[in-house]
Design a protein around this nucleic acid. Structure first.
Lengths: 183, 183
DNA sequence: AACTCATATGCACATTGTTGCATAATTTGT
DNA sequence: ACAAATTATGCAACAATGTGCATATGAGTT
């Protein structure tokens, strides 16, 4: 039920092809959602069957033909209805914690390796996010930020704040592990 | 593939019934995983078919019969193997951000209501977590914390740090929304 | 006697996600 | 001239997850 509303949201902002949607997941929206091209095309087919979206077939001479999808009026209604209903608070699942739950004095180094990998990956991602923020959302640029970009920026901020908290936690876990199982 | 290893992890720590596992999800492990009883029983059945777990049928006079599950030797091997392999970094999905992506000057109050609900829910959860920390993980209690409880505490810390970051982000979003669409 | 709660287990169906396969045109690089 | 990458779309099979429905016992409550 979720991907459906993600696609409706994106198509409401701007009509697109399936391919465009996939690239949007790979770039701007990737902070908080993603889906494979197979999923996207399947869901677009279902949405078209349900008359929530319509599409214009566009023939291109240089590239394969494409279908530009946009919301139908009942699609707009469905989206509006979804927006009016409160979200259920979502529960997160964290496999790293599941793994760490297995920590004992025998496999300590295994756990520490996993931690270090996670720290490294998080730092790389953090650096990426911060670079994007500096490059596209400087104080100067923020003054003239287009309204449709505001929540894209909010998504980036969410990524930055989450990673910061995650790194702080990883450092705590490292200490806890040492205290409990080292030597 | 994930629930499988969650159950193996929990059963390795201590043999349990399906019912016990569900209650574990509702309490201690709920910070980072949960599954319905239907999911748990189905997965236990699959694990038993695959000979990764075994169970002892226990007849009770006062209550319905129960099955106490524990790891078989191949279950222990499967768990160990999983622990040795690096985790893939997981991508998170955030429906709140999807909803906020629809923000405009017409539906601003709708978005703000959703934000306020989210802030409220987060604060309630935060208070709960902090109370648990005070009650069960005081400085004094931490000195004699059983080793098998260390990562349960780490899970709680993860919850606390995440919610803190989430609340900070929600406050940023509130400001961004006002600046962009208010008036 | 009827109702609710806690214990305890499970099937069936629907939705979602992943993997493999398939096609077709153009552009870019070697 | 050939190979690889990019643009563009989709089906089929299977794996995993989530939701609704169903059953049974015993304890305590109204």
């Amino acid at each position: 039920m979720s991907l459906k509303f993600v696609l409706l949201t994106l198509l409401d902002r701007e009509p697109r092809t399936g391919y465009d949607l996939v690239r949007t997941f790979e770039t701007a929206v990737g902070y908080f959602w993603n889906a494979s091209h197979q999923q996207v095309y399947r869901e677009l087919g279902a949405l078209a069957d349900a008359r929530l979206v319509k599409f214009k077939q566009v023939e291109q001479e240089d590239k394969p033909d494409k279908k530009i999808y946009s919301l139908s009026s009942s699609g707009q209604k469905a989206l509006r209805l979804w927006l009016e209903n409160p979200l259920k608070t979502q529960k997160n699942k964290d496999l790293l914690l599941v793994k760490l739950l297995n920590a004992n004095s025998d496999n300590l180094s295994l756990m520490q390796e996993e931690l270090q990998r996670n720290i490294h990956d998080s730092e790389v991602l953090q650096a990426t996010y911060l670079k994007i923020e500096q490059r596209y959302y400087s104080a100067k640029q923020m003054r003239s930020l287009p309204v449709d970009q505001v929540m894209i920026y909010a998504a980036l901020r969410k990524g930055i704040l989450s990673i910061e908290a995650h790194l702080a936690w990883l450092s705590e876990v490292d200490k806890l592990l040492r205290k409990a199982f080292d030597k």
